[in-house]
Amino acid sequence: MGDKVEISTKNELMTAFKAVAGNKRKTEALLNVEDLSLSFTQYASGLRQTELKVISNLSLQAYKGEILAVVGSSGSGKSLLAHAILGILPSNAKLDGKIEYDGEELTQARKEEVRGNEIALIPQATTYLDPLMKISSQVIGCVERKNEGLMRKLQREVFQRYNLRPEVERMLPHELSGGMTRRVLVSTAVISSSELIIADEPTPGLDEKTLNETLSYFKGMADRGCAVILITHDIEAALKISHKIAVFYAGTVLEVANVEDFKNNGENLRHPYTRALWNALPQNRFQAIKGHQPMQDEVTDGCIFYERCSKKKALCSQGIPQLKQVNGGMVRCNNAA
């Protein structure tokens, strides 16, 4: 209900402006990630350096007004994707490939410029809040003194919208309940009026009601014209609100499917892994496939899913399959047509 309430005249103008500008290049992705690879330099035994590849040849696009869910199992490097986009990786990380934001290359300098005001991160847990700082100061963030009053007003409005009582402002993070923490973290992104919102595992440990509520916040953001990237391992939650699902496996995206493809038995799904994932759900066949994701230090020449694939061919073990446009989605599989 309150979702449609505009929060300030300044924002109203911005939204109107963006809507006009947005129409011009509606077909253009707000965020375009192409062949992104991320590796860490590590010291193995002694002084020998090794490169640990955690993300390889990853491509995905996020569009305004749409929710893209990046779904993958825990520990497959999904959060690092978010950190890579925001430029908050540790210093031993090496990033290759192309990231474009709003049609322009997103360099580290530009990342530092846009993060917090054009690209916002919604982190996963209360550990991402300073344990000794009042909630209001954290939501408002580091602003110039002259803007503080304005930001405070904005923060009150955002809190009201997310049903956070005024006394929450003065609380410290440990005083918040799980649901409140979630809403506070969401507020930090909303108050920034960012256009691209990356939510990192926003749903684990939430009860049904809080989960749906949290998902509705993301839906609301997309409805207001934001591009939302929802990083999660919860495919069911993702299916409820997303427009597109990027299936993340062992550091890469195997398929980008439209949410309609997941209907029925999933015969419209393009990649064997996506189908396996779909069939593993309790309400479907509840069937798991053998094996596990390759570890980061295992080097594979061919398709990363080769070992576990039920449709593998000789070709699949030689070279990574090309990314193909199939039926309105993207897939990295030799068998897909």
Binding site: I88, E112, P123, Y128, G141, C142
Partner: peptide, 17 residues
């Protein structure tokens, strides 16, 4: 190196801030 500083950086806070 804590999560909350990482988040602060993600929100555009820099160095001495």
């Amino acid at each position: 190196s804590s999560d909350y500083v990482l988040f602060a950086k993600a929100r555009g806070e820099k160095g001495m801030d």
